[in-house]
Design a protein around this nucleic acid. Structure first.
Lengths: 337, 337
DNA sequence: AATTGTAAGCGCTTACAATT
DNA sequence: AATTGTAAGCGCTTACAATT
């Protein structure tokens, strides 16, 4: 027996709608699910009954028979604070929502909590809560393979470097080559770089593009310093280059946050940008526009990456096979080069 | 008939566990739900069967009979970008997660998208997706009353100013009085303020506390300028005060973001803080620590507010009546007073 | 009295049958 | 052939009966 708390009327069911419209439950179900094999007049009277009763399908009942929850997750395997302070994520989330658009799925943000073991998130994702997931992957293949082992389909944003896993990524090597070529075209011959962490694909590939451009131009790389994508690390890396006394007239910095750090250090050292040193960043973050001089940088459209990933996930859930997508990047010219 | 995609084995059900353990479905259900009226030996063998089969209850089936989804929402009726750039929100979200702790509910972040009409979120919340919601309320009573009309219980963080709706809030008036009293105690007699927007409860009440403190001390209020909680508005309001030529030796600014804006303006005008003008903010945001001089401010613990709200929602869902909670605030002394 | 099982039912979808 | 209905079943929980 089911009891209802006082004052709460049970929500109308398919049965109620069917009775009011004078048809069977099956017919109502067909109308609700947009089937075309219902007579137009029947559709009309069922829709009237639905709106009269303010009927809304019971998700649990539907999920039980369809074996679909109607929920997808946007997974951010990062500690809380980081997520909310990195402008990449709101953009990414917004893009994902756009991508799911009218698909009638509920989008859940799953953010790893600081101190949470990785398997807590895996357990959540693999417990029937969600039908599929988009993973903002900025980590190595360990988490990726674990995610891939799950029963639900997953699309990665950022190459997880694991065969067989569908992903959307920027052409990191090409983008970095473009950035470096831009410096070379402007006549710079001693080009330095501040890289991202080299245990991340984005870190390694942006360094690769840098090297490729110089090799193609017959130039030797200038000083190379490793950063970790934080502003502080950009500041420190720039300081190390200056302290080394190495000669350089331009620098490719693997993200905008580090690039603004480098701008700060150069400013303190009395170097003029771009006259004494040209600087190009990566990401086209909001701060690239705000810095002084404006930071020339490469686009890295988090929203578009996620929009495409969402579309891929929808296809996958519909049984349509998908292949990974590589998006192009282009330079945004401001004052720093 | 139900078909399974090739290669996918159907997940084990209660039935499977029951068979393996040699008991009925009902008994397995009792063990799964932690009932105490099962014989210890039975519990043991059922648990063994569960772990052998890696059984996990089907949420949809459970939800269908219990009429509970096991999902609660943290609702942020704010545009996307704002949310992710305001440090209040990660703190709040983290606190909510803490509050739900081990309660085995799934927490969903529902963030209004820019351009979304308010009823889109209402429809979502009222469509059986969630059992209840915490709403980070920084808006007037219009949204609050709409939310309160829904079938699910809602707890507000921030007084929605609508009778009968449970909320958690800071004692805004008392906190602002404390802040202003601190300035008076330090010997200041001409105390100005930059308020928040006066269509927000927090804006009005912080102004009220300011007035109360001055009245109690027998002092006239100094210049009063209205801001909108952004840094730019703090800068502009401070400039207006300076331009007015009004006399003042201290200022209470209704949030830290505006206070740092005011610090900037005072710095540009050659005023020394705290010697020429003492400044106290509100929120104890991260930037209060980073500014120079460090900003003296009032605590406004988003995480704790949300933790308490989560606990209230859990109680409400369990049928336990709750009453609104007002949390105290205290000053954090740094260099600006 | 303590423990377990039986059976109904939650609200849907969908294969198949029946009707027009 | 187009439209509709019948009835089974998805995987649980829980009132009540039955058993020890």
């Amino acid at each position: 027996m089911v009891r209802f708390p006082d004052g709460e009327r049970p929500a109308p069911t398919l049965e109620d709608v069917a009775r009011r419209a004078g048809v069977s439950r099956a017919t109502v179900s067909r109308v609700v699910n947009g089937a075309t094999l219902v007579a137009p007049d029947t559709v009309k009277s069922v829709q009237a009954a639905i709106s009269d009763l303010d009927y809304r399908p019971n998700r649990a009942a539907r999920a039980l028979v369809t074996r679909r929850t109607g929920v997808v997750a946007v997974v951010v395997p990062e500690a809380n604070e980081r997520v909310f302070n990195d402008p990449f994520f709101p953009q990414a989330y917004h893009g994902a929502l756009q991508g799911f658009g009218n698909s009638d799925v509920q989008v859940v943000l799953a953010i790893a909590q600081p101190g949470d073991p990785a398997d807590r998130m895996l357990r959540y994702l693999d417990s029937g809560h969600v039908d599929g997931a988009i993973v903002l992957s900025h980590h190595g293949p360990a988490l990726a393979t674990a995610l891939a082992r799950m029963a639900i389909p997953v699309v990665f944003v950022g190459d997880p470097e694991t065969p067989g896993l569908p992903f959307v990524d920027l052409d990191q090597v090409d983008a970095s080559r473009q950035a470096t070529e831009l410096l070379i075209q402007r006549g710079h011959r001693r080009v330095a770089t501040i890289t991202g962490p080299l245990d991340m694909a984005a870190g390694r590939r942006r360094l690769q593009g840098f090297r490729d451009a110089l090799t193609a131009a017959g130039l030797e790389p200038g000083p190379i310093e490793v950063g970790d994508f934080t502003q502080a690390s950009g500041r420190a890396a720039a300081a190390r280059i200056l302290a080394s006394g190495a000669d350089f007239d331009a620098i490719f910095v693997a993200n905008d946050l580090m690039a603004t750090g480098a701008l700060y250090t150069f400013g303190e050292a009395g170097l003029r940008v771009p006259d004494d040193v040209a600087v190009i960043g990566f990401d086209n973050a909001a701060l690239a526009e705000q810095s002084s001089p404006g930071l020339t940088t490469m686009t890295n459209p988090a929203d578009e990456l996620c929009r495409v990933a969402a579309e891929m996930l929808i296809k996958t859930l519909a049984g349509v096979p998908v292949t990974s997508v590589i998006l192009p990047s282009h330079p945004v010219l401001r004052g720093s080069v």
